[in-house]
Every structure is written in C-alpha cells, then in structure tokens.
C-alpha cells in the first residue's frame, strides 16, 4: 500500500501519459493540442502538490498557525500556467491558419496535400 501513499504522483503520471498519448496518436490538430494541454496540466499538478505540507494551511500570517504550505511552487506554476495559456492560444491560432491554408486540420490530409504540391 506504500505505493498508494503518494497517490498524487500517480495522478500526475497517469495524466501525463494520457496527454502524451493523445499528442502522439491523434491526427486531429486540435486534439493534439488538447493532449498537450493535459500533459502540461499534469506538470502543474506535480508542482502544486509538491508544495503541500501535511497539516499546513495557506501561507497567510495569522495568529496561532505555524505550519504553512510552501507558496513558492504555487507562484512558479502561475507563471507556467500563463505560459501554457499562451502556448495554447498560439497553437489554436496556428490551427485556424492551417485550416484556411489547407482546408483541413487532419495531419494525414495536410501531409497528403504537401506531397501533391511538391
């Protein structure tokens, strides 16, 4: 049962694998981005759960509370979330442009069209 004690890491690993699998296996560009997003989210969870201290509360100075969770990973991951959002926005914008240029968002179709135009 010791393996389950750190179940948060298992969640992270499972999410990460789901995300990577989606990126690799799906031909639809939007789905790929979704996979990428899941993958990134798993890392966010890794950071967030890392900062948790057993029995600790939010890191606000208050009388009578001496155990705080570590706020630093949470702050860091805020930055990472912003980066993730930006990545997603850029990725989706690219997909829109690809749709305009190729008329499709399926990887197979796009590669087919590139071959034809060569």
């Amino acid at each position: 049962m010791a393996y389950l004690a750190q179940y948060n890491y298992w969640v992270v690993v499972v999410l990460m694998m789901i995300g990577l699998y989606v990126v690799v296996s799906h031909g639809n560009l939007v789905k790929k981005l979704m996979g990428l997003s899941i993958f990134q989210t798993s890392v966010f969870i890794l950071y967030i759960s890392m900062g948790k201290v057993d029995g600790g509360t939010a890191p606000i100075l208050e009388e009578g509370i001496s155990v705080y969770s570590n706020p630093l990973p949470h702050v860091l991951i805020l930055t990472a979330i912003v980066v993730g959002v930006a990545t997603m926005a850029l990725g989706l914008a690219l997909v829109v442009r690809i749709k305009e240029a190729y008329g499709s968002i399926e990887e197979g179709d796009i590669q087919e069209k590139d071959k034809q135009s060569c």
């Binding site: 990577l20 990126v23 560009l29 790929k32 981005l33 990428l36 993958f39 990134q40 990545t87 850029l90 990725g91 690219l94 997909v95 442009r97 690809i98 240029a101 190729y102 796009i110 590139d114």
Partner: peptide, 17 residues
C-alpha cells in the same frame, strides 16, 4: 509558404513537450 504554418505547428508541439 503554407508549409511554414505546418512547420510552426510541429515545432510548437515538439518544443512545448
């Protein structure tokens, strides 16, 4: 070239990973 878009997309996926 429209292939630039596709190249950028591929780079985005790989780079983000």
């Amino acid at each position: 070239d429209r292939r630039a878009l596709w190249a950028a997309y591929q780079y985005l996926i790989m780079g983000t990973i």
